[in-house]
Design a binder for these strands. Structure first.
Length: 467
RNA sequence: GGCCCCAUCGUCUAGGGGUUUAGGACGCAGCCCUCUCAAGGCUGAAACACGGGUUCGAAUCCCGUUGGGGCUACCA
């Protein structure tokens, strides 16, 4: 059998990490078996679907390196097909028109639930409110008391009782199909062999099976993967902060890391943590998918991104950094200087953005002093150290690493204190904080003029404090 | 409420009857390196939800309990 998978997002928001993971699973599954991976846009919700979201989702998929085959199928362009099939089901008495409005039904449901009962729509309601020319929805006739078997590749057999399923809508009053109808029809017509999707769709499986059977269409093999949860154990959502692929890209995450992290969330291959895309294609199989939901751990994600960051070719990091510098409106530095900054920030940052954000003092003079750092180190007793340092350092024609080192050595000799006692005040004066790359590197990268300005600023600051 | 799913360190997970003093990773703690912070190296603390079975033997199989999650739309 030819393996064909699909990713079928609805364009009602950016590509959520949960959706991204199912896309990745489907892509890996077909890639690993030499099949096709298709893209279908489920834009049947006229109110919530927006083109910009579709564009954003497509951009995210490309960024992640998930390539689909052929044209994108758009459900809004297939309305006539769904309409014809729904009418056919009416002709075959497998479906019927329903004139009750959604609002009226909502009331019924509410009343029932207040009484602790469950309202399930059945055929006898179908003529209520019927009138010529009045819009209607089409519902599938679901027979009672039948077992529906869902063969799940991850969970095994799941059995549903058809009595629990009401006569659900397959075609809405606006002529658009519902999710289950369009999905069942399209999966069959696109000859999808396997559907890998989130756990939250398990409930839809029996409905889609019912539709496919009513229509005499083929059914894909199903694999439901556990959900991704937030730190609070609830389904990951906007409440939990960053949750779309776009946001992570904008924060300076690498596509390789996003791919790797998301795959490993719910799938494993022994003890291995880090996989290239190629390795994933080789090693992926449904066997490695777990059954229990996974909590999204932003800390581990960050760590993984840092790993990938340090593995990137320098030229690529430099390009990305330059773009971020421009985007943040910071003064672009010479390529030589940017490279030095990159070399220093690389092992101190987990994301591309952090490489710039945490190195602001290399770009601008008017950073703020960290309050605690200034209180501890920019104090009167360190005035002499900073003055001596200025004297020693600013005398060099060649502002080299060795000369700078020598300058610090001489200040140590003159004051009789260790390097640490000199480096920290200098660090705060030059960077505003007690944390930075090695002090000699900082001085060298900043350059003589900047160092002079900043020591002056720090001395002024000490003076103003003392006053 | 009903239906469905799930249950190993805080988190991601390996292990699926004896090989287990339950392994790895993140995080955490300590040490090394060291001018600070990182990166890197080493070490450590940390888990089979509970109760019944089945079995010579159960983290592993079965049942129940508890807990968590999902769904319950003319959303997808």
């Amino acid at each position: 059998m030819k393996i064909v998978t699909r990713f079928a997002p609805s364009p009602t928001g950016a590509l959520h990490v949960g959706a991204a993971r199912t896309a990745i699973f489907n892509w890996l599954f077909s890639e690993s078996l030499g099949g096709d991976f298709l893209l279908r846009i489920e834009d049947t919700d006229r109110v919530r679907s927006e083109e910009r979201f579709e564009l954003q989702i497509i951009e995210s998929l490309k960024w992640l390196g998930l390539e689909w085959r052929g044209e994108i199928i758009r459900q809004s362009g297939r309305l006539d097909i769904y309409g014809r099939l729904a009418e056919r089901l009416i002709d075959e008495k497998k479906a019927y028109r329903c004139y009750v409005t959604a609002e009226e039904l909502g009331q019924k449901r509410e009343e029932a639930s207040k009484k602790g009962e469950i309202f399930r729509y059945r055929r006898e309601w179908s003529q209520i409110g019927a009138a010529p020319g009045k819009p209607y929805a089409i519902r599938l006739s679901v027979s009672l008391g039948e077992k529906i078997f869902v063969e799940d590749l991850v969970r095994g057999e799941i059995i549903f009782d058809s009595s629990e399923i009401e006569d659900f809508v397959i075609l809405k009053a606006d002529g658009f199909p519902t999710y289950n109808f369009a999905a069942a029809v399209d999966d069959a017509q696109m000859e999808i062999s396997h559907v890998i999707r989130g756990d939250d769709h398990i409930i839809n499986a029996p409905r889609q099976i019912l539709i496919a059977e009513a229509l005499g269409l083929g059914k894909p093999q199903l694999a439901h993967v556990p959900m991704i949860l937030g730190q609070d154990g609830k389904k990951l959502s906007k409440r939990h902060g960053a949750e779309s692929v776009t946001e992570y890209r904008l924060c300076g995450y690498l596509p390789e890391a996003v791919l790797n992290y998301l795959v490993r969330l719910g799938w494993s291959f022994g003890d291995q943590e880090i996989f290239t895309a190629k390795e994933l294609v080789e090693k992926f199989s449904l066997k490695g998918i777990g059954k229990s939901p996974s909590v999204f751990d932003s800390g581990k994600f960050l760590w993984l991104n840092g790993k990938y960051l340090r593995d990137l070719p320098e030229e690529r990091i430099l390009d990305e950094m330059a773009a971020i510098v421009v985007q943040k409106g910071l003064p672009l530095q010479s390529p030589q200087k940017l490279r030095k900054i990159m070399e220093q920030m690389l092992q101190r940052s987990e994301t591309l953005n952090a490489m710039v954000d945490q190195a602001l003092y290399f770009f601008i003079d008017d950073f703020e002093y960290d309050e605690q750092a200034a209180a501890k180190f920019l104090v009167e007793k360190n005035r002499e150290i900073l003055e001596l340092l200025a004297e020693e350092l600013l005398g060099f024609k060649n502002f080299s690493h060795d000369n700078i080192h020598g300058g610090f050595e001489r200040v140590m000799q003159q004051t009789g204190v260790g390097l640490g006692k000199i480096a920290q005040p200098a660090r705060v004066a030059l960077t505003g904080s007690t944390k930075s790359p090695g002090i000699f590197d900082v001085v060298e990268i900043l350059g003589k003029d900047t160092v002079a300005r900043r020591i002056t600023r720090a001395l002024d600051f000490i003076g103003s404090r003392g006053a």
